[in-house]
């Protein structure tokens, strides 16, 4: 790790004031799991760390029927997975938070940090840049072992996959994210927070260098909603998934009124599949309709060479999440 200076402001205005105008000046320290690894690998080398853990306004989980759930950005995955209100109103979210990583990470990793974590692309982590471009301008990903890379949204130059499995669960619930910067707060749909960078200087989030994440707002789902989160991962625990699917089904009796299907680890951003949602609308859930939704979800997917199998796995993730949701799932 390169040397940096460290501050722990007590107010969010101060935190924002301590951040820099451009990336590289400063980074926000919350749980630290990802940031410290990136700094040790010399991928980011901020001159200052702004620890936001002493900002009490970034804490707390509250629920009310009109606004829904408000989760402070510092709440850890453990706290979210064990919170009675989250379990009652957004059980799929509690489940997804509890499936992520390991107990040690869930105890420190925050929801804000989970939204802002950087890609696990092995070229990126080995210092070849976010877009992994060779000196001759060609993509290292397209020439190399891209078994874990994107199958959707992969027209380039970004081929990494979004690593958050919590974000798709939140997006499936139509969550919004609240940010705070020098000009005050702003709130955007979480879906819009994730962007596919076009150049090495851009990041994967609609976050300015001097903004912090303050809260995540999750609307209360209508009654009768069924939801499920499914992860395809090889190991029993603590293994990056190949694909995940978060499905929210708004049911009218046995028929799907409308659906939200969001995948992760398949594209540079959490991937909202309107095709899968349309395939489910008006249908009753069966093996066939679930499979059709899975097929629709990957209809536009394409292999980069070594990751063709992920198309099948994403298909299966959606199918199983739909079937699991219909059976009651985590909702």
């Amino acid at each position: 790790m390169r040397a940096f200076e460290y501050a722990s402001p007590k107010q969010k205005q101060q935190a924002v004031g301590l951040l820099g105008q451009q990336w590289g000046d400063a980074e926000v320290l919350a749980g630290g799991s990802d940031l410290l690894a990136l700094m040790k690998d010399d991928i980011v080398h901020p001159k200052r760390l702004v620890n936001v853990k002493e900002l009490p306004e970034l804490r707390g989980i509250t629920f009310n029927a009109s606004r829904g759930l408000r989760i402070g950005s510092l709440m850890t995955l453990s706290e979210i997975s064990e919170d009675a209100q989250v379990k009652e109103h957004h059980p799929m979210l509690a489940h997804a938070a509890g499936e992520a990583a390991s107990p040690q990470i869930r105890n420190v990793a925050t929801i804000g940090g989970n939204m802002c974590q950087r890609p696990r692309c092995w070229w990126f982590r080995n210092g070849f840049g976010l877009l992994a471009t060779a000196p001759d301008g060609k993509s290292l990903v397209l020439q190399g072992d891209n078994r874990y890379h994107a199958i959707l949204g992969n027209d380039g130059p970004a081929y990494f996959v979004s690593p958050s499995s919590l974000a798709p669960a939140l997006i499936a619930y139509n969550a919004r994210i609240r940010l705070f910067g020098p000009k005050g707060p702003r709130e955007i749909p979480l879906e819009k927070f994730f962007v596919i960078p076009k150049s090495e200087n851009e990041r994967e989030h609609d976050l300015r260098p001097n903004e912090i994440v303050t809260d995540v707002i999750v609307p209360a789902p209508p009654s009768g909603v069924k939801a499920s989160h499914y992860e395809v991962r090889q190991k029993a625990a603590f293994d990056w998934p190949y694909a995940t699917a978060s499905v929210v089904l708004d049911m009218n009796g046995d028929t799907v009124r409308s659906a939200r299907v969001v995948m992760s680890h398949v594209a540079p951003i959490p991937w909202v599949s309107n095709e899968a949602a349309q395939a489910l609308a008006g249908k009753t859930i069966s093996e066939q309709t679930a499979d059709a939704a899975g097929a629709a979800a990957v209809a536009n997917a394409k292999s980069l060479g070594r990751n063709k199998y992920k198309i099948k796995l994403a298909h299966v993730a959606v199918k199983r999440a739909v079937l699991q949701a219909a059976k009651g799932g985590q909702a």
Binding site: W122, W123, R125, N126, F128, A134, L140, Q143, G144, D145
Partner: peptide, 12 residues
């Protein structure tokens, strides 16, 4: 896992 282009190990 090795990368032929850069000659380096990827899963480090």
């Amino acid at each position: 896992v090795m990368d032929q282009t850069t000659g380096t190990m990827l899963n480090t």
